[in-house]
Design a protein around this nucleic acid. Structure first.
Lengths: 140, 140
DNA sequence: TACCCCCTTCGACCTACTTGAAGGCAACCC
DNA sequence: GGGTTGCCTTCAAGTAGGTCGAAGGGGGTA
């Protein structure tokens, strides 16, 4: 099965710009061209793109992704280094999820706080700031 | 209690550059200056910075954070809009955590896969790619 | 007075896209 | 056959959110 850059963009939920960017930076080395020089993608390319998006989505810099994909091309002797890279990324991602959960609880608190305020006020009591004492809003 | 920019940077685990960036872009409007024009932070500023880091950490653009902090300054009449903003951020963060978890499972799979390969091979069997059949490494 | 350290501002640089400009090629319409 | 549409190309410039370096000032200590 082969795909145009637009089809790939739609399939993967990213822009054609990003795909060209990844390709131009050597992260999709096996993408072919047709007679009109248009990029032609196959299912292996889609799989590669899936890995790229996974690693980018977990914060790996483009340069390190390039290196990882080079290792894959080089064959099985690079498995130990690939293993270390993926382990590092695993830890990084776990930390990021933990951070996000902490941020989320801060946000949850705000949502609940605002909901509480809105519940105890009539809708029309939200009057201009100039008519109110704003001293209590500094940390709200 | 008052703090220098370095103390704040250390306390919050970010660079002095970032703090100046947030200040220069109006996100820490109440920070004072001393006689030598150095920035002086108090506990309310730290709280503000905590919110900034929470919102940035969950992907809110600087411009929207500025707007949110403006709303806070404007007083209680802006609570409904702040509520909506925090709710949107809540949803966004939940989605991001879900995405990260999905990426994580892809990474976990790679780690396990590589661990398996390394377990079934002797350490000295990781020879140069040029000496091996690399056909099976395309999607590894 | 010299030196050191920390602070300042301003402007340049960086990453990872994102967009725009200019142009090629194919397909359709009249 | 010429014009328009439309998708593709490359290359260059723009953007967000920092990050860093240069140049310079103030204050404390020897």
């Amino acid at each position: 099965m082969s795909y145009t850059i637009h089809e790939v963009a739609q399939k993967m939920g990213i822009s054609t710009y990003s795909i060209r960017y990844y390709h131009d930076h050597g992260m999709l080395p096996n993408v072919k061209r047709d007679a009109n020089n248009n990029r032609v993608f196959n299912d292996v390319d889609l799989e590669g793109l899936h890995i790229i998006l996974c690693l980018r989505g977990t914060g790996m810099p483009v340069e390190r992704i390039q290196h990882y994909l080079d290792l894959v091309q080089q064959g099985e002797c690079t498995v130990p280094e690939r293993y270390e890279m993926m382990q590092a990324q695993q830890e990084r991602t776990l930390r990021e999820i933990a951070d996000l959960k902490e941020h989320l609880s801060t946000i949850n608190f705000k949502v609940d706080h605002y909901a509480e305020i809105m519940k105890t006020h009539q809708p029309d009591s939200f009057v201009p700031a100039s008519m109110r004492d704003t001293a209590t809003n500094q940390t709200a």
